[in-house]
Amino acid sequence: MTQLASITELEIGMKIQISNGQARPCKTNKVKIGQWAYCNTTGYVVDVMEKYGMFALSDIPVDSTDKERNNQVFRFERFNIFSA
């Protein structure tokens, strides 16, 4: 895995892993685990908004015919982003 330095390196359809750098909380704290999992996940880039420094991540590939896509929007500068 290589860390991406700029939002211009993101391409639609690219599989990436994002991390906020925090250690995983203990498994007994369900609320903290849910918050941590939201900010430390793997997915496919479905939109890149360079003007705003943001990107959208989906749990399924872009070319999938499934319309039940779960998109999440993130700010690039808040995360460590790796190509998967």
Rank of each mutant, 00 (worst) to 15 (best):
M1L: 12
M1C: 10
T2N: 14
T2V: 07
T2H: 07
Q3A: 14
L4R: 01
S6I: 03
S6C: 07
S6E: 11
I7R: 00
L10M: 01
L10G: 02
L10K: 01
L10A: 01
E11D: 09
I12H: 02
G13R: 02
M14W: 01
I16H: 01
I16K: 02
Q17L: 09
S19C: 05
S19N: 04
N20I: 08
G21L: 01
Q22S: 10
A23T: 13
R24A: 15
R24V: 10
P25A: 02
C26R: 12
C26S: 14
T28G: 06
T28N: 12
N29H: 08
N29W: 07
N29Y: 10
N29P: 05
V31D: 13
V31G: 13
I33N: 05
G34W: 01
G34Y: 07
Q35T: 09
Y38L: 13
C39W: 09
C39T: 05
T41F: 04
T41K: 09
G43Y: 02
Y44L: 03
Y44I: 11
V45M: 02
V46I: 14
V46K: 03
D47L: 12
V48E: 05
K51M: 07
G53S: 05
G53F: 00
M54A: 14
F55P: 01
F55D: 04
A56G: 04
A56Y: 06
S58W: 01
D59H: 09
D59R: 01
I60C: 02
I60H: 05
P61W: 03
V62F: 05
D63A: 03
S64K: 11
D66C: 08
K67D: 15
E68D: 15
E68W: 13
E68R: 13
R69M: 09
R69G: 05
N70P: 01
N70M: 13
N71W: 10
Q72R: 12
Q72N: 12
F74A: 03
R75W: 08
R75S: 11
R75Q: 11
F76H: 03
R78W: 08
F79M: 15
F79V: 07
N80K: 04
I81F: 00
I81M: 00
S83H: 09
A84Q: 13
A84L: 09
